[in-house]
């Protein structure tokens, strides 16, 4: 059970970090302030985490526990 939580956390956190990284990359094409970029990346990270947590945890649980 502990493994499920840890593996899930690694997956959804990584994907969320990648999502906010992609957001930051996208902002390079426009004239945005650093704060806007950082705030936007944080918001994207938060929403991505919220979306992914309930999706990833059951998937990992199912995969690991057969």
């Amino acid at each position: 059970m502990k493994n499920v939580g840890l593996i899930s956390a690694i997956i959804y956190t990584s994907v969320s970090v990648i999502a906010s990284g992609l957001f930051l990359l996208a902002t390079l094409s426009g004239k945005y302030t650093v704060i806007e970029r950082a705030g936007g990346a944080a918001w994207v990270f938060l929403l991505s985490m919220i979306i992914l947590m309930p999706l990833v945890t059951p998937m990992v649980k199912k995969r690991l526990q057969g």
Binding site: F23, A26, G40, W43, V44, L47, S48, I50, I51, L55
Partner: peptide, 21 residues
């Protein structure tokens, strides 16, 4: 709930990159 968060994310990205400008 998940759908709404996804929608909120899409809305944010749209207004940030497109709509606001």
């Amino acid at each position: 709930i998940l759908g709404v968060h996804a929608l909120a994310l899409a809305t944010f990205l749209f207004w940030f990159f497109v709509g606001f400008g």
